[in-house]
Nucleic acid binder design. Structure first.
Lengths: 290, 290
DNA sequence: GTTCCGCATGAATCGATAG
DNA sequence: ACTATCGATTCATGCGGAA
């Protein structure tokens, strides 16, 4: 169990070979999108993305518990005026690899990149694709229930003032009708659309996704003490989420800069616990190496 | 032009053969999702959905203008615990047919049907997939601008020194800003996430979308006087949207019940204009038949 | 303490221009 | 012709210092 709560340096396709079968409860990751993080991972071209991803996914599948879940945060980029097909091809290939495509959650990003183009609007959503090894998997729906009191307020707040103005006409009718269904209940279940802003503020680190994103899935698919893996952990957001929720994490990261950032962030939480980074530049072939 | 502003009875795969090439400005449709409208279209099984759809899409492509757009509202159903792959396979096949997959908008349904399952939450979103014949197509972005968010009122009240000039990003993202550009602006461009409630009233049509949905795309991709086609027009929502916006429509529908509903709805708007329904049960082979 | 408000930042994309 | 680089465009958030 020495790989727990560590950031393992290296490429997850190799590093994860050292982990035992059926040992991970949840894989949550946001891999480098094609050609998007060029300095790291050598900038995978959209056309070779699926080929690049598949052997790594094979390791994911080996080490995930049969009751575990794999959440993939990804979005296709525009290539030559079209949405590239690497994401949907990846879904098909992962199914061929044996994964079940259980669900696709939607992350509505309230603050996307600005920009204006003649043929498209700004992209305000990303995919959170759920894969499983078997049809029966752990899911703790109560853990992400929303107080009904908060629900209406939260829902209105999450959509932001602008969104409400933008479809004023609809808010009254449809919304009010639905609310009556929930009278007398304290908590309601959420749905498959998540409204969260990206983190882009003044800090020394910049995370691609907010900590609330992995937190939500960690609560939904794991219990305290379970193990969460992020094979492309970047600045460590998934590790922060796991520790805050009393889960263990395993992180893998290639870029030394990202490793440094991740360790720094994790250390703020894990004061007094053993050092969480393995040595840099080491190739891990067996558990004993870690 | 006798096919304008009519509901043409029959299967669009056949009916549309009577329409001339390059004659439609926008195709907006919500086809029967696999097995979802069993009484109509004989309930297409998920596995044969792509095969069923492709010859119809070939007609769509023939009659769409080179500058036109095809918006497909669809969502994969759950089959045997998994999201079925017919939608993503359809995207790949349509590209093979020559379509460009320009964009995927997301419809966030604010009041989806209640329900609870052990392995998934309620489905609150659908795809609105944009296809084009060529990279250059008509898009009238100003027609769908929305009020600027509240942030601007406070933000732009008092400009700092850096706000008055172009401020280059420090991190080399290539992204700079000139905040003073925004002074006096009260409308901004929207993004690719649409927040709209589903229709709640009791219509026979099972896949009911709000009239705001086609309206948004009609405003975005057509001008007054242009022609909007819905090859699976159902209860006529797309026709209502087109007429309200002074566009012409062409509707095709197989179910007599739906045709009756659509004609009734359209008639409420089109008082005093020629009857909009062609005879039922007639096979249309040429324009003269219509 | 709480609220206010300035401000840097972000998985972007297109078209023109240069090699 | 085909690829690489560069400038232009633009929205919403939450930190952090000030009031």
């Amino acid at each position: 169990m020495d790989y727990l709560n560590k950031i393992l340096p290296g490429d997850c396709g190799e590093v994860l070979k050292a982990l035992p079968d059926d040992s991970i409860d949840l894989i949550f990751t946001s891999p480098p999108y094609a050609d998007q993080r060029k300095n790291t991972y050598g900038g995978i071209s959209p056309d070779s993305y699926v080929t690049w991803f598949l052997p790594r996914a094979e390791q994911f599948r080996r080490i995930l518990k049969p009751t575990g879940t794999f959440i993939l945060n990804i979005k296709e980029r525009v290539v030559d005026g079209e949405r590239h097909t690497y994401v949907i091809e990846l879904i098909l290939e992962l199914r061929r690899q044996g994964w079940l495509w259980t669900e696709e959650f939607m992350w509505h990003k309230k603050n996307s990149h600005p920009g204006k183009w003649p043929n498209r609007f700004r992209d305000n959503w990303e995919r959170l694709i759920q894969f499983n090894k078997s049809k029966v998997f752990n899911m703790y729906q109560e853990a992400v229930m929303v107080p009904v009191g908060d629900w209406a307020r939260d829902r209105l707040a999450k959509l932001s003032q602008t969104d409400l103005v933008r479809d004023e006409s609809r808010v009254g009718s449809g919304f009010g009708k639905n609310v009556s269904n929930w009278v007398g209940r304290d908590m309601v279940y959420p749905n498959n659309v998540l409204h969260m802003a990206t983190e882009c503020y003044n800090r020394n680190h910049s995370a691609a996704f907010p900590v609330d994103l992995p937190s939500w899935f960690i609560k939904l698919f794991t219990l305290p003490g379970d193990v969460v893996l992020d094979p492309f952990i970047g600045s460590g957001t998934t590790a922060v989420a796991a520790l805050q929720l009393s889960r263990s994490f395993v992180g893998v990261e290639l870029s030394p800069e990202n490793i440094a950032t991740a360790v720094a962030r994790v250390s703020e939480i894990q004061i007094g616990l053993p050092l969480m980074i393995a040595d840099e530049g080491v190739e891990y072939q067996t558990l004993a190496d870690i």
